[in-house]
């Protein structure tokens, strides 16, 4: 199987990688770059645990092939906080305890970050539409919605 040389920006760092065709972005992040905050939950684009931002838009990283990434920019949960300073969204998740086991949280944060960027003042319905692809079995979701709404008042995505 031929490999592809790709250059991409991950959380602001330039990366140059040799990747096989069948590797997905999820595994590029987790296995090649050690960015394990992005979680593997289904490898079928259904659970959202692996959500990252690709050129600013949320995608399931299990649904993107590594060779497609040449010249693209990826932001993962590790790229949200800058110099230890949490984003207002992360602060709101912490403040409201919108987290239990925490496995869905990185994906939730990425989807919600993208929502707040494209719609700084979402309604509850907007939040539900934006996060319906992020499954959570623990929290019952209401606190997650509330946290996004709080963040929309305290400073949005960044």
């Amino acid at each position: 199987m031929a490999h592809h040389m790709i250059s991409l920006l991950v959380n602001g760092q330039k990366e140059k990688l040799l990747v096989p065709s069948n590797l997905t972005l999820l595994h590029v992040l987790r296995d090649m770059l050690g960015l394990t905050g992005t979680k593997n939950g289904c490898e079928a684009g259904e659970c959202g645990a692996c959500t990252v931002l690709l050129d600013g838009e949320p995608v399931n990283s299990c649904m993107v092939l590594a060779p497609e990434l040449d010249g693209r920019e990826v932001i993962t949960v590790e790229g949200l906080a800058k110099d230890g300073q949490l984003t207002p969204l992360q602060e709101a998740f912490a403040e409201l305890s919108a987290v239990q086991c925490g496995y869905c949280t990185p994906g939730m944060l990425m989807s919600a970050t993208a929502l707040l960027r494209r719609k700084p003042h979402p309604t509850q319905q907007d939040v539900q539409e934006a996060l319906v692809g992020n499954l959570c079995r623990c929290t019952g979701y209401q606190r997650i919605i509330d946290a996004v709404m709080v963040a929309s008042r305290t400073g949005g995505a960044e």
Binding site: E57, P58, V59, S111, G133
Partner: peptide
């Protein structure tokens, strides 16, 4: 289009 899968999926 808005009823297909979920937002992330619809970006692909």
């Amino acid at each position: 289009a808005d009823t297909v899968g979920n937002y992330q999926l619809r970006n692909r």
